[in-house]
């Protein structure tokens, strides 16, 4: 896939049905009333990873106007999950602001966003607005407010507290994301058991970086598991971050089976 079609440069304008397509118009109105997501091909857009197996599983790419949950595999891997989430946020809104809303506790425990490092994952620090909140409730409120704002491209909400996002709260976010055609990402410090109304759910951990030179740290690598997907298959992959081009790549299969084994894991195993 060519690099330029991978990103959606501009958001589509809010949906307005043409007057002469009455049945289609009605169908959409009903869908909207019922709060069901738009069919994927009609949604504001998909965000292809540019990696065939992942895009296939997602039915073309990550739904842009939806809520996605990204959990760190463990607390020590919070930075990996953050990097993954911020990279996605950066893809979705190249020219617009990205809001990073977090509990103050998360900043204390996992570290505060560091501008020079944001640049490394392809997110311009000048476009980032960092919002801290004392309570998960405030994080959710700020996310919803931000999703409504025209100038915001993507919203990342970081909630550490376990079981702080219930079905109702996540559903509100999900609807707000769909209505305003913006990407909403929920970042968790560890995998949650509580069900969340997200389009997809990911568990992201760190993976050993490919050793291209002797005893040096290679490019960032992520062990990514897609454990819930409303529109397709599940899967698990090892990705590498391409610092120069700001995109993910599938980790090359080495002579040692680092990535190959994981790719073929059945879905049930991935869920567990």
């Amino acid at each position: 896939m060519p690099a330029d079609s991978r990103l959606f440069e501009k958001s589509s304008p809010p949906f307005r049905a043409p007057k002469n397509r009455f049945p289609e118009d009605l169908r959409r109105a009903v869908r909207r009333l019922e709060g069901r997501p738009e069919p994927l091909d009609e949604a504001a857009g998909l965000l292809p990873f540019g990696i065939a197996p992942i895009d296939q599983a997602l039915g073309g790419g990550l739904a842009r106007a939806a809520l996605h949950e990204i959990a760190a595999a463990s607390e020590a891997e919070a930075a990996a999950a953050t990097g993954f989430a911020l990279a996605l946020a950066g893809f979705s809104a190249p020219a617009r602001a990205v809001l990073w809303v977090a509990e103050e506790m998360a900043h204390r425990e996992s570290g505060a966003p560091y501008g020079p490092g944001l640049d490394e994952v392809g997110l311009a620090p000048e476009a980032v607005l960092v919002v801290a909140a004392a309570h998960p409730r405030d994080v959710l409120w700020a996310m919803e407010e931000a999703l409504r704002c025209r100038a915001v491209g993507a919203v990342v909400g970081e909630i550490r507290k376990a079981n702080a996002v219930d079905g109702v709260a996540s559903r509100r976010l999900s609807l707000a994301a769909a209505r305003h055609q913006r990407l909403a990402l929920l970042l968790r410090a560890r995998p949650e058991t509580q069900p969340v109304a997200a389009a997809t759910r990911w568990i992201v951990g760190a993976a050993p970086s490919p050793k291209r030179a002797l005893s040096a740290v290679g490019p960032s690598a992520f062990a990514v598991r897609l454990v819930r997907n409303r529109h397709g298959r599940l899967g698990s992959w090892t990705l590498e971050w391409n610092r120069a081009e700001h995109r993910f790549e599938l980790a090359p299969t080495h002579s040692q089976p680092v990535a190959a084994e994981i790719v073929d894991r059945p879905h049930s195993a991935a869920v567990a």
Binding site: D138, E145, C149, A151
Partner: peptide, 27 residues
């Protein structure tokens, strides 16, 4: 105007959460 929309959002968030809690990264 996009910046104006962003400023409005900032004001709303700051009014609720406190001005110091809505921040921009500066080098």
């Amino acid at each position: 105007d996009d910046p104006a929309a962003l400023d409005e959002l900032t004001d709303r968030l700051a009014a609720r959460l406190g001005s110091h809690r809505v921040a921009r990264l500066v080098a």
